[in-house]
Design a protein around this nucleic acid. Sequence first.
DNA 1: TAGGCCATCTGGTCCT
DNA 2: AGGACCAGATGGCCTA
Length: 201
Amino acid sequence: MDSVYSDIDSNSCDFFPHTDDEDSRGSLCPASPDSSPEPEQQQQKKRRRGRARSEATVQVVKKNRRLKANDRERNRMHNLNDALDALRGVLPAFPDETKLTKIETLRFAHNYIWALSETIRIADLQAGKSSSAPLLLSSACLAEVPSPGSDACSWSSSRSSSSCSPAYCASSPGSPAAPEDYSYLQPDALFGVRGFVPGVY
DNA sequence: TAGGCCATCTGGTCCT
DNA sequence: AGGACCAGATGGCCTA
């Protein structure tokens, strides 16, 4: 097995066995700040030693760096997927138990949060309380969420629907359903996430 | 077989 | 300088 750094070890300074491309060659062996100026011949010698890495070694070093970056990127995406799984875990389950896709999960979560907020708001109104208080989700409100399985409503899942679709009206969304009932809290109604056709579920 | 979803790789950009 | 983040490309798998 050929050592990645064999070339470096034999040709560059021991303190900076470093890895970079052509641009950084000049910094391979920095002179100590307090060192007095050296003869031109010695300086040239050092420059030559710093320059002596082969092209193949540079390629190998770059490849290693790429592999490392790939590994980090993989871990990053795994973390992202773990977070999505956690999010799926706290959302109401679908009747057919099929796993939500990533985009479906995000849209469902968005709608779910909106619906829970609506629930709180309506509950507050019905209780004769002021609705000016900030909306906070509580376990009592979560208990309002009915079990899955009802008529589906549908909304366009197109990306251009950010302005008026209930799914995207986060601050003060227009109600996707009659404000007096809670049917919109049911999973099917929450999304249209799968482009559900009414009556299919 | 086409289309959707996904994982991975990759190069660019931004941030610390 | 190195890591995080992002978006495009690519190929595999699955389903209608």
